[in-house]
Amino acid sequence: MILVFGKTGQVARELRLLSPGARFLGRDEADLTDPAACAAAIRAIRPAAVINAAAWTAVDLAEQNEDIATCVNATAPGAMARACAALDIPFVHISSDYVFDGAGCDPFAPEAATAPLGAYGRSKRAGEEAVRAANGCHAILRTSWVFSAHGANFLRTILRLGRGRDDVSVVADQIGGPTPADAIATACLTIAHTLIHDPTRSGTYHLAGAPDVSWAEFARAIMDEAALPCRVADIPASAYPTPARRPANSRLDCSGLAAFGLSRPDWRAALSRIIPQIGDPA
């Protein structure tokens, strides 16, 4: 049995559909602000593997709440990883493109130097370091621009705006791979099951949708798929200031996924599948 931390987030929702036999712990049973309780849950349940699909994902709020974000994104995963190492079971942890500074135009390889631009990225990098330091069987799966039919994400925001406006301005100088949450869930399960039988595949991997696009291009594709007449105007990131800086280049080198028989998902095909599932995105 696989134990999953998280129950209502985008990836956790997809994991519940893909693996109903797994055990899912929400905040009521495992609050990530209490890392010791998370580790105790692993020791009590003794699963075959653990997937951490819970995180602090409010990028801008992390700037004023870095201590809490770091507890949730770093201290708790570290405690989970140590508990898994002690029980000799695999631990799969989801991380982010925000651990990189976004410099250049080339895709970041898993071994590339990290240099986060803000508090959220720092908390995610600290989480990676804590997981590796546990010295157990693990996989860190970095991903980017997550979207699904549920929760707060760019797809749902653009649909809401597109249904209520004639035009919308979207950042065009940040490039990355929009990633469907169900593809992340599938990868987490595949990696977890593989590590149970082959712990030598421990390491850091990247998963991002293809092809790489700007936020504005992604928005136009959403409008087209949803048959919305709303026009998308390109703007620079400087015209849309936020408390936290975002990487300009979020391209990820995902070639390592081949070790698990996985490849980059086509986000365009995912849009055609997901948009019909969304009613009122408000």
Rank of each mutant, 00 (worst) to 15 (best):
A53F: 09
D60R: 08
G26D: 13
A54S: 15
I51S: 03
D34W: 01
I51R: 03
L25Y: 06
D34Q: 14
A74R: 09
A39V: 02
V59P: 08
C71A: 13
G26W: 08
V59S: 09
A39F: 09
E66C: 04
E66W: 04
A58H: 11
V72M: 12
C71N: 06
P47G: 01
A53V: 04
P35Y: 11
V50C: 03
N65F: 05
A58E: 14
R27C: 04
P77Y: 07
D28C: 01
A40V: 00
A69F: 06
N52D: 14
A49E: 04
A37C: 07
T57P: 00
Q64I: 07
Q64F: 05
A44R: 15
R43T: 14
R23L: 14
C71P: 00
E63F: 10
A54Y: 07
R27Y: 08
N65A: 14
A44Y: 03
E63V: 02
N52V: 04
L25N: 06
P35W: 11
L25Q: 06
V59M: 10
V50W: 10
V50P: 01
F24A: 02
R23K: 12
F24V: 00
P35L: 12
A41V: 00
I45F: 07
R43C: 09
I42L: 14
E29S: 15
L32C: 08
R27Q: 12
G26E: 10
A53N: 08
N73G: 04
Q64W: 05
D31M: 09
A76F: 08
G26A: 10
N73L: 03
E66H: 08
A36R: 12
A74L: 11
P47F: 03
A74G: 11
C38S: 13
A76Y: 04
V50D: 01
D28Q: 13
A48D: 15
L25E: 10
P47C: 06
A76T: 02
A49C: 07
N65W: 03
E29D: 13
T57M: 04
A30P: 12
F24M: 02
D31T: 02
I51Y: 03
T33Y: 02
T70Q: 10
A39Q: 10
P35H: 11
A36C: 03
A48R: 15
A53M: 11
A40M: 06
D28S: 14
D31I: 01
A74N: 08
A37H: 10
L32P: 11
A49T: 08
R23N: 01
A37G: 12
I51H: 05
V59Y: 09
T57Q: 06
R43K: 13
L61C: 03
D67P: 03
A44W: 04
L25V: 00
N73V: 11
P47W: 01
E63R: 08
N73I: 11
L32M: 15
L25C: 07
A44G: 04
D28G: 13
A49Q: 05
F24G: 00
